[in-house]
């Protein structure tokens, strides 16, 4: 299907989905609100919130953009044995395993530098790594499902897949972080 390039066509294709996703994100804001006391008690966890959500969204959006282009160029088949698909999935998990421990360490150092921390560094790193690996696996599943749905519904995957993947990663990011903190902290 050809990509659309007029303001009206782009808006018509995206606005309803954006509105739905905004409502979903308000739900994740409500989760954050209930979790606020714990975040304020442990400043390193508060610093960790935007970067965990952002990095998870990045992993999903890189994967989604690569799959969308492969799809437009005709080099992708939605088969688990497809090399393009499997290779990108493996890279997503490997990237999470590399970046999240550093993110945890960075959050701990920043909170140490700006007013003290209440948690040991290894706890913050463990929280980041466990959340990151869970989110990478979820990002792969969500991206493939959204790409397939866009294909079946004949929507341009660039307009649809990235928003769905990024938002699901955002909401899951808050929920997964909340769950991991409850187990590890």
């Amino acid at each position: 299907m050809p990509a659309t390039w007029s303001v009206r066509a782009i808006t018509r294709s995206m606005l309803p989905l954006l509105a739905v996703l905004a409502v979903v994100e308000v739900g994740s804001g409500l989760v954050l609100d209930t979790f606020e006391a714990q975040l304020l008690r442990h400043p390193s966890l508060l610093v960790l919130v935007p970067v965990t959500i952002g990095t998870a969204g990045n992993l999903g959006s890189v994967l989604a953009a690569r799959l969308s282009t492969a799809f437009h160029l005709g080099t992708l088949s939605l088969d688990p044995r497809d090399d393009e698909l499997a290779g990108n999935a493996v890279a997503t998990v490997a990237l999470a395993a590399t970046v999240f421990p550093l993110v945890g360490a960075g959050a701990w150092v920043l909170s140490l530098a700006t007013g003290g921390t209440t948690l040991p560094a290894r706890t913050v790193v463990a929280v980041a790594l466990a959340s990151g690996l869970a989110l990478a696996a979820l990002a792969v599943v969500v991206t493939v499902a959204a790409t397939y749905a866009a294909y079946r519904l004949e929507l341009d995957p660039d307009d649809v897949v990235i928003p769905v993947v990024t938002n699901v990663c955002d909401v899951l990011g808050v929920v997964v972080l909340f769950g991991v903190v409850r187990v590890l902290v």
Partner: peptide, 20 residues
């Protein structure tokens, strides 16, 4: 409560623009 929605909307709109 509003912050995740605002930050996500940026990502959604400009991420899709960039992908396009």
């Amino acid at each position: 409560v509003l912050i995740p929605a605002l930050l996500a909307t940026r990502g959604n709109v400009y991420g899709a623009m960039g992908a396009k």
